[in-house]
């Protein structure tokens, strides 16, 4: 006779039970802002294609307080996603061995910040010199 009766615990609300999981869910949720931002940008492109009036209307709509607040939120979400992605990317990168030493995770993360900084500065320089 067996008295075995394994108990399986519910997963309901699992991501609220732990700070690590909450941060993970926020990271995943940032994709919603990225998707909406992409749609807004697509709308802008379509406006540009359909002529000056449509383009100017789109530019005006981008200056509304709602649009400005959304863009600030989307920027914050993108920055959060970038930070978390740079932090986990050494887990996706193969083991890089230089000389006889394994390149530490922190070096891979730092390299990405450096590349990002160079790209942003280049973009800023291009934007200012137009």
């Amino acid at each position: 006779m067996t008295t075995r009766k394994p108990y399986i615990r519910s997963m309901q609300g699992w991501w609220l039970k732990n700070t690590f999981y909450k941060k993970y869910m926020i990271r995943e949720a940032t994709s919603i802002f990225a998707a909406i931002y992409a749609l807004i940008l697509l709308e802008g492109l379509m406006a540009l294609a359909s002529g000056a009036a449509a383009w100017n209307d789109w530019l005006v709509s981008m200056r509304s307080p709602v649009a400005v607040i959304f863009h600030l939120l989307a920027l914050a979400a993108a920055i959060y996603h970038t930070i978390t992605w740079f932090a986990v990317s050494p887990k996706v990168a193969p083991n890089i061995i230089i000389g006889k030493q394994k390149v530490p995770a922190v070096a891979i993360t730092a390299l990405q910040y450096a590349i990002a900084a160079i790209l942003y500065l280049t973009l800023l320089w291009v934007a200012l010199s137009i």
């Binding site: 690590f20 999981y21 887990k91 996706v92 990168a93 193969p94």
Partner: peptide, 24 residues
């Protein structure tokens, strides 16, 4: 890539790295 597995590993195995390198 929740990544909590690597956080709690008592032997620094970093299973998340093994799993995600294998996606590549």
């Amino acid at each position: 890539l929740v990544g909590y597995c690597s956080e709690v590993c008592p032997k620094q195995v970093d299973p998340a790295a093994a799993v995600n390198r294998n996606k590549v």
